[in-house]
Structure formats: C-alpha cells, structure tokens
Nucleic acid binder design. Structure first.
Lengths: 227, 227
DNA sequence: CGCGCCTGTTACCTGTTTGTTACCGCCCCA
DNA sequence: TGGGGCGGTAACAAACAGGTAACAGGCGCG
C-alpha cells in the first residue's frame, strides 16, 4: 500500500512519513508540484496526501492533473480550515482534507476512512483497532497492551481480520464462516475450533476473553476498548 | 436525497437545515441520540450529520448503533479538532468529520465529496418503540427508562419483535405462535411459558407487567407509553 | 525420508435454551 | 356451588451451543 506525500515543508514531510511507515504504509515523497506529478506517473500510489501551496505547481494543479488520469484517493492538507482552495479541491475531486496541524493518530484514521470509502480492497498491511495491531504481511498480531507479538496461521488471520474490519459489531457465525472458508466449506464446529485457537493466541487469559466477545446464539464481536 | 441532521444546538441545527435544503437535500432533524436512532430507523437517510456530544445517547453511541445495521455515510461534527472522540468515531466507521464552526459552502462541499460513491445500506436491525430498544444484531433489549440491557434468547427475541412491530395492537395468541414457531410447531402452553420468560427479563416487576399487556381470551399487546 | 505445523474431525463437559408437565388461582357459567 | 378453561408460576428433563482437548491426515521443508 503506497502513499505519496506531497509537502514542501521538510520537517512536516518527515514526521508524516515516519507516522505512515509505522502504520505499515510504503511512503514516497515529493516536495513540489511537478515532482509530485512525476512521482505519480512513475509509481502510481494508492493514495495521495497533498499540500496545497507548493512551489512550481500548486496543489490544485496537481489535483487536476492527477484526477485527469486516475481516481486515486486524494487527501488535501491545508493550513486553514475554511480555505476557499479547500472547497475548490474537494469539488475538483479530492476525497477529504485535513487542517494542519493534525495528530498522527488522526492522520492514519483519516487515511483508513478514505480508503474504506473509496473501496480500496487491498488493505494496508497494518490494521490497528481495538488494542490490536495486525500485520498482514508478516501474519502477526501485536497486542498493544503489553507489546506481545504472536504469529497467526492463515485461517486465524482471516478470522481476526474479519472481526477487525468491523470492530464493535457482532458478526454472525455464518458470515464469519463464509469469509474464512468461502461459500462452500466450513461449519460451526470448525469456527469454534478456530476461534478457540485464535483466542488462545491473542488473549491474555484465554478462559476470560477480552478481545473477542461471544454473543451466544448469534456470533462474535471484537470489543472496542470503551465498551 | 435525505440527510439526517443530529445536533442538539437548535440554532446550529436550524442553520444547517436551511443550508442543506437550499442545496437541494431533504432534511430530517433529531436533537438527541435516541431520537436520532429512532429517526434513522423510521426513515433511513442517505447521509447522517452527527454531532458528538448529545443528550440521552452520545454521538459515538449513535454511530455504533447505526453502523451495526447500515453503512450509510456519517459525517461527524465536533467542536474540537484532535478530539479523541473524533478519532474513535472515524475508526468506528464514520466517513468524515468537520470542526465547528464551519461555513455553509464547505459543509455542502464535504457532503458532496462523501456522497460521491456510496454503498447502499443493509436491512435495519435496530427497532425502537414503546420505551424499548431492540438490538437484533446483539440479541439484546435496552429498557430505556433505566438503561438496563438484557440478553434475549432466539425465541424471546422473535416474540418481542413481533410485538414491537405492531405496538399498541393486540396480537392474537395464534398469530404470535405461528410467527415464533412457524406454521407447524408451538402451542398455547409454550407461548405462555415463553411470555413468562420474556416478561421476567424485560419487566421491572415481572408480577406487574407494564410493557406487555395480557388481553384475556385473545392475546397480548405491547403497551404504548402514552396510552 | 522424517519432522513439525496446520487443519479438519471427533468427543467430552458445561451452562443455556427449550419443551413438557404439573399446580394454583381466577373468572364465568351451568 | 363446583367444573372447566385460561393464564401465571414452577420444576424438571431433553436438546443444544460453546469451550476444551486429543488425535490424525496432509503438506511443506530440511
């Protein structure tokens, strides 16, 4: 999952890059408008973070050029809310905007929200919700509370991913079964077996699960921390 | 194109409604969280503008409840950027957020940006009538009067649902029996047994039922509060 | 070829849900 | 005045669902 960061303030560009890399994204940077367009053409990213005032070609120009050939999601970065340029950018096809300064957490949250909205199915390698960080590329979960990392098997990963994509929601056993095993295979016995294995890996005390909640007769839910 | 505006500040709610109507949207309003959920269920909107701090049920709660049954786009309204709640809301499935105060123009621009590309909503799963909120996805009822949440079994849920779908109406025992057990199984004994179990869960004083009224010789009815 | 992990299968234990039966009190009416 | 139907209550047993465990086939890999 590649993100192109277009930002002429080098300090900001660095901190943003750092944040995104930690969240599991591959980051490319450009420090002016023309370089951005060039970078975009050479290696098309999956999302663009776009500062508005840039040397050589401003953000709106970049936005227009990119939109002419691609509907890659674009998030505008701007110093002021209420900026006329922001509105123009959104009308021109940008997907979202953020006002500087912003927190790293928010940035990542917004990126995810935009990706979900535009239906980018290829998810970022790193999915962090409800106190768990799932690294799909390594097949590992990190339990944030104590930093423990566990290796998951293919099926366990699919199951956890299904839950993490809808945190706080109760997913019926049947739908979990089909997302893990496909429309044909799988039954309740296998699900509970798999759930048992998953829990014994990710839960601190497997007999007292805190991450995955059972809703008897219906299915399972990933608990949001506040609940 | 219907927009549900959930905002407890009446002045702001009015100006937003005005703006949206002028922009060609059909506007519904709700001034607290529970009303929002109710309104959502009665007339599912195409987009929700959601203030975060609301009376009776806060914005995150509304977000969670709505997200449980639908992927209608949600735009969060918040007084502060960088609010922890905003991040939580976005992670919980909100699609965007705006910081108050915002300009009408921007509001409309953001709505358009969010609305570009929308998935349709799933069947509603939340049913709120007569002082009870039934969450089918979790198999739970919330007694609004005191906020108590009770877990129901499958049959209890079907029975209560049948009553809640026709509040204030007397439903004959026979029809209740067939909606719960199907055309084949079920008899009066089982119904009264089930009703006893349901009442002992949802009524405050089971020996003095207030939600479900018995109409001897005919059936049962869910009492409307105003009746 | 042998080893270890992943997966599916079976079985058992437990608590919950559901169906069954019984009893009690009430009201209506012969 | 005493059945008989009806509804509420209770206790019990059968059926079921979920958690746990052990085991075996398959597959990749050294």
């Amino acid at each position: 999952m590649k993100v192109l960061v277009v930002e002429d303030d080098l300090a900001l560009s660095d901190v943003v890059s750092f944040t995104l890399r930690r969240a599991g994204y591959e980051v490319m940077t450009a420090h002016d408008g023309l370089a951005a367009v060039e970078a975009f053409e050479q290696v098309p990213p999956d999302l663009i973070l776009l500062d508005l005032n840039l040397p050589r070609l401003d953000g709106l120009g970049v936005c227009r050029k990119v939109r002419a050939v691609s509907d890659v999601p674009i998030i505008i970065l701007s110093v002021r809310a209420g900026d006329e340029a922001v509105v123009r950018g959104l009308e021109m096809g940008a997907d979202d905007y953020m006002v500087k300064p912003f927190s790293p957490t928010q940035l990542v949250a917004r990126i995810r929200a935009v990706m979900r909205r535009v239906g980018v199915s290829a998810a970022p390698t790193m999915l962090t919700v409800a106190g768990l960080a799932l690294d799909r590329s390594r097949g590992e979960v990190l339990r944030i509370e104590d930093g423990a990392a566990v290796r998951l098997t293919g099926l366990e990963l699919k199951l956890l991913e299904a839950l993490m994509l809808h945190p706080g929601q109760v997913l019926p056993s049947d739908s979990l079964i089909t997302t893990v095993w496909g429309p044909e295979g799988g039954d309740r016995t296998m699900l509970k077996q798999l759930m048992y294995r998953l829990r014994s890996k990710i839960e601190v005390d497997a007999s007292r699960p805190v991450y995955v909640e059972t809703v008897p007769g219906i299915g399972y839910a990933l608990n949001m921390p506040s609940d």
